[in-house]
Amino acid sequence: MRGSRLEIRIGGTGGQGLILCAKMLADALCATGKRVAQSQTYEPTSRGGFCNSDLVVSDDEVDFPLATALDCLVLLDRLAVKPSWPLLKPGALVIADTRLCPELPEGELRVHPLPLSRTAIELGSERVANMVALGALAALAAVCTRDAIERAVRAETPKAFSS
């Protein structure tokens, strides 16, 4: 009955927009009928340093809202590797930025090194690396429809950018 539990972590450093990225994914999942618990990292330093946002997704009410065994991990900085690696399930999906997180430990995992931040820079701003990551995650993890993600992104985006 609670077999549907799915755990996702977006990891990187403070200021990369990880929590916003996770929130958009959470909103999208929410809109498609999933129950979600999302962690909000809240540390005295909000810029720089290890930062992450975890999602626990379930068809029923989430019992334990903290990550215990990650199904998906998105890495936007090498700082996030060490604290996240022990939590990965065997066979978990790992999406890592090729520029900011080039080296990964060994593991029985589905690893996808992707040029997330480089793509963002090519698009005009490194600050949208979180959105590139969200797109990659949506495509690779197939946790919810592209349509739902797009709507969640639009809802959170200032009008000037969302035309």
Partner: peptide, 8 residues
């Protein structure tokens, strides 16, 4: 853990 975590 519940104060600052969001849940549906």
């Amino acid at each position: 853990d519940i104060a600052q975590r969001t849940e549906t």
